[in-house]
């Protein structure tokens, strides 16, 4: 089977369209400013930071498994069959856990550029979901280059780290000013 980088065009286009759609919706839509507080938390920032942090932990586990599956870490023998299933399960859960967070971001707050942190957070948030869509579609694409998924997964991991850094970490550090 010959790898054809061109087969990634459709997943990347779909990812770009997703990121653009999220950004345009969040920018055009009038932010409602309505908070919804989950039981057990005292503010939206608290539960969003908690869910974002859980998402990050799941992503770190998922990336670690991805590195093991592709043979970049761990013993030389092939990864056990369950590793791939667990990798997908963790990714799906991470995506699910992040949904309330992104919903609050774009419905309540909208796309904002009030300062550097907020601008970076808004941009990376849209890019993260675009990358997620692109990676999910690339997984199901035949003849993709062997480097495609590790590269997209790593890039997604860095973008997610940026999203978390500019929100939850700032919240926990108490410097959200």
């Amino acid at each position: 089977m010959t790898a054809r980088p061109a087969v990634l065009a459709a997943p990347l286009a779909a990812g770009a369209a997703t990121a653009l759609a999220l950004g345009v919706y969040a920018a055009v839509h009038e932010p409602t400013g309505r908070d919804f507080v989950l039981t057990g938390f005292d503010s939206a920032a608290s539960w969003k930071s908690a869910l974002a942090s859980i998402t990050m932990v799941l992503f770190v586990m998922q990336i670690s498994l991805g590195l093991r599956i592709t043979g970049r870490v761990g013993p030389r023998r092939p990864a056990p069959p369950w590793a791939t299933d667990l990798h997908r399960l963790l990714g799906t859960i991470a995506f699910g856990v992040s949904l309330p967070v992104v919903f609050h971001c774009i419905w309540t707050l909208g796309y904002q550029t009030t300062d550097g942190r907020v601008s970076v957070h808004s941009l990376l948030g849209c890019v993260a979901y675009g990358l997620y869509v692109a990676k999910i579609l690339a997984v199901r694409t035949d003849d993709r280059p062997v480097w495609a998924l590790p590269l997209m997964g790593s890039f997604l991991g860095f973008v997610m780290l940026g999203v978390w850094w500019t929100s939850a970490l700032v919240h926990y550090a108490g410097t959200s000013t």
Binding site: P31, G33, D35, S43, A44, A45, S46, K48, T108, L109, Q112, T114, D115, V118, H171, S176, T177
Partner: peptide, 20 residues
Amino acid sequence: PRLAGTVIVNYPDATDQIAI
């Protein structure tokens, strides 16, 4: 600084804004 449309984003937790 501008406040219209920005305070909820910059201070998601109202107690932070109250402290300021």
